[in-house]
Design a protein around this nucleic acid. Structure first.
Lengths: 346, 346
DNA sequence: GTTAGCACTCAAGGCTTTAGAGTGCTAACG
DNA sequence: CGTTAGCACTCTAAAGCCTTGAGTGCTAAC
């Protein structure tokens, strides 16, 4: 675990930069020429050998150029990286798009996914903000037919759930309004556990009302169970252009991972540990656990209001990705989404 | 345009079947051996030559096997095809999954997309059912903070829209309830045009109420503009396994098309013309218009209640797809979705 | 510590060869 | 006349071979 010299750090940075740019193993001569280094290729060769020895770089085959290893990327991102902030005009452009977008969390999330995929030229992954514990904000009951009821549940954090119910007694909209009013008085701001307890110690308000409370609770349980909400994805076609996905088998594995929503949700829910970079975290190679994305990195941040409702936004691409651009982009978009969440939920 | 003989039809069917199975150009000897034909390969060769002459088949290169042309597939699907209905148990399994699924159109659509992608081993495309003309079923106003209002709009056909509003005056939930009640009395069952006219001839009910009506109208307009609703997609990774997508450029073009929601919506909205097969339609090669999917077919059906709310469900895959299985599958799922729509909206 | 020089390695791309599947045509057969 | 066996011909895909060139490690001199 010996320290690297300054020069070695510089060279490691250059190798990462060059490899990200060209996707080809980078050699000593090339490096000297391209970056006008003031020492010779032989010197660089010695340093490369040292970096390879220390496992920051590897060679695809004997006597080829060098490629950063996972360890190399980790070191680069955690220390050497120089962020390339988004240009002012790009920021304005993005903010403008949000200001014009159809209102509502759903639309914002899709917009964020689309913008991120575009900026990073990779797959973007955005999960909806979810109340950390699901609390009821408002219940609304709507009579669809005489024996059919639509329950709309507005939860803190702006999320909504709907359920259809079939009941045995005929109910008018007026009667439903009354029930809804009662429920709102009792349940507003409560979570599933509190509601369950309250409801147990309550005299029955009639068959239908009981049925409604039962359905409401079930809906809350469902919501609680889904720890990370809906996950939106964009930019799949972008990443197929990358050489690491020209092998369609490789591409399939990555896309399979994206379709496995539970896996993805579980993975995103871990967004807290791992190294942090100004709120943005980077997972390399599926954290060693998910071999479907062993060659990919995920740059991800949590957005929203801590303790109220949070979601995640990130970009998934080959490990050879432009971290110095993607990290600021994710950070910026997470900030925008956070503002939108707190505007609409406090 | 001379008629084909019976034998030619049989042979065309076999070529399609074999090519769908193997993805390799199929030759005369192979055909005779595999299907135990009681005439010789030379005879088959003559027939193949005739079919090629008539443009039902083509040769990738001189003296290779035959491959069905678009015309060949069209003819096969419109006349020769023998449907392979879903086995009883598969149907039950699917119905069971729907009965257990989280209620609500959203969930059903995703489930249908997932099942279809799985059954067809291709990309499934499902659009949400949309009222042919958007009519209001119910308006609900919810006070989020004292100057912020959430409007929930339930439309006929089960669709929902939500909007946040910022207003200048402080409004209590009680006041909002009153306004909502008035709006429901006036607007229930009306579409945007009718509401616009009604609202114009109305005395003002106060600043906030006017603002709410304006927002409601805008929301309706937005909804009207989106002719085909949200489109869900599943099974992208499945199709990458097909040899026609091993060229990643080809795959990218197809996926690009899927990301172009407007294109896709526009295309799905054409589901009415073209050849019909028991309610299911088949588009070959993007109908000549969309060259991004020139090598793909789309098997698609409209579901829902005619004149009330309809959506589309379909499967997109290489033109070399298992039509005899996919068509019944799409038909079956469209039926299930139709039942669900009519259950929840009549 | 740095650098020039040199022999060596090895993938990538181009070229050639080979094998085999498939064709079209002709002539014979019932 | 439709069907079939036989045969010469075509053309791809796969395998093998060669060449090229970027890149290396090592050594010896600066």
């Amino acid at each position: 675990m010996s320290e690297l010299t300054e020069r070695q750090k510089v060279i490691l940075s250059l190798v990462v930069h060059e490899y990200v740019r060209t996707a080809n193993p980078v050699g000593s001569k090339n490096l000297v020429k391209h970056y006008h280094l003031d020492y010779s290729s032989a010197t660089v060769r010695n340093e490369l050998a040292a970096l390879t020895e220390a496992q920051y770089l590897s060679q695809p085959y004997t006597s080829a150029g060098r490629v950063p290893t996972e360890k190399g990327y980790r070191f680069f991102v955690s220390g050497l990286i120089q962020m390339r902030e988004l240009p002012e005009e790009t920021r304005h452009m993005i903010e403008h798009q949000f200001s014009q977008a159809q209102q509502g969390m759903d639309g914002w999330i899709k917009l964020a996914a689309s913008i991120l995929a575009d900026q990073a030229n990779a797959i973007s992954v955005v999960s909806a903000p979810l109340p950390n514990r699901t609390r009821v904000k408002y219940v609304s009951l709507i009579s669809i037919t005489s024996k059919q009821i639509l329950m709309i549940l507005v939860l803190e954090g702006g999320q909504m759930q709907q359920r259809f119910m079939f009941v045995n007694e005929t109910m008018t909209q007026g009667q439903l309004n009354e029930i809804a009013e009662t429920l709102n008085r009792m349940f507003e701001g409560r979570n599933s556990e509190e509601i369950r307890v309250t409801a147990k110690h309550l005299p029955s308000m009639g068959n239908v009302a009981d049925e409604i409370v039962r359905t409401l609770l079930n809906t809350l349980y469902d919501t609680d169970a889904l720890q990370t909400g809906e996950v939106y994805t964009d930019g799949i076609n972008k990443v197929l252009a990358e050489p690491e996905f020209s092998d369609s088998e490789e591409a399939r594995r990555t896309l399979r991972f994206l379709d496995e929503k539970p896996l993805l949700q579980n993975f995103l829910s871990k967004t807290t540990r791992e190294q942090k970079v100004g709120g943005v975290q980077v997972f390399f190679g599926g954290d060693g656990l998910l071999k479907d994305i062993a060659n990919c990195s995920l740059v991800v941040a949590r957005y929203g209001m801590q303790g109220v409702a949070t979601g995640t936004i990130g970009v998934l691409g080959p490990m050879r990705m432009a971290y110095s651009k993607n990290i600021p982009t994710v950070r910026f978009l997470a900030g925008i989404l956070s503002d939108l969440v707190s505007d609409s939920s406090q």
